[in-house]
Amino acid sequence: MNFSPAPLHIPDGFLTIVVSAIFWLITIVMVGLAVSKTNRSLGEKQIPIMGVMAAFIFAAQMLNFPIAGGTSGHFLGGTLAAIVLGPWAGILVMTAVVGIQALLFQDGGLLVMGANIFNMGILTAVIGYGLYRLVIHQKKGIRLAVAGGGAWIATMAAALFASLELWLSGTTRLEIVLPAMLGVHALIGLGEALITVAALAYIEQTRPDLLNLDNSAREGGWGWIVSGVVISLLAVLISPLASGNPDGLEKIASDLGFLGSGLDAPFQILPDYSIPFLGDTAISTILAGAVGAIVLIGLVVLLGRNLHRQKSD
């Protein structure tokens, strides 16, 4: 049995009730919207399809592939689902996947499921679909490249939010958990991006009718593009800032009344010990993050072109 728990599934007990409740609230609103949208715009036919697609995502997570350094790429699938099925259906499919992983395999908790659905279902759909929607009428190479970039950013954003949730709950120290989570997920996200691109290229080649672009464009409007771009930019900017300068975030969080308002001992991160391999100034780390993102997108563009060329041969 190849099923292995992924580090993004937060179990019960790791988040405080306040943090769990906040993310449940966001998740309930988004999933409720998704349910009413799909009920209104799609027929009953869509429900069995979404169910089987959810089973597909679950089964596809078993197709591991090795990346350098002994890690293996673990496919999450949120971006692929949102691009192929549309954003609302993508959210519902990922909600079902996260829900059944928690219910059946205890991979992720019940009380914290709102946060898990948000990280792995909603964020990935908003980022993955939003960015893809931006270039939906462009050439195939560009679309594939953006889909790959979106998948990578979505994975990083999920890791970022999981770290922030854990930190707000006083479970971890931000300056330790954030670099670790982002480091691991930079690799996992790479696998995610490459598989998403390769799978999309395959589907475009064999059943282009399934990726009905006009249909998909009608379903998600400018709202998706704007929120997708804004959230990805936020994620790209916050990650280096937060890992280089956790005190700033700490101050924001305590101003908002998070730290110290809960039942648990508030955390204060001492400036005495810091990790030297992190950047010195916020500017340099943001730059580093941006350069990394550009390099990655360039790589994915090259790969997309390459696959495209092989197709047309």
Partner: peptide, 24 residues
């Protein structure tokens, strides 16, 4: 390897999709 894995995921997707159509 990546291309092969991607094709496998794509193939799985198509088989699932077509199966869901028949199921419906």
């Amino acid at each position: 390897q990546i291309k092969t894995t991607g094709s496998m995921v794509g193939q799985l997707f198509l088989r699932s999709y077509e199966r869901s159509d028949r199921i419906y």
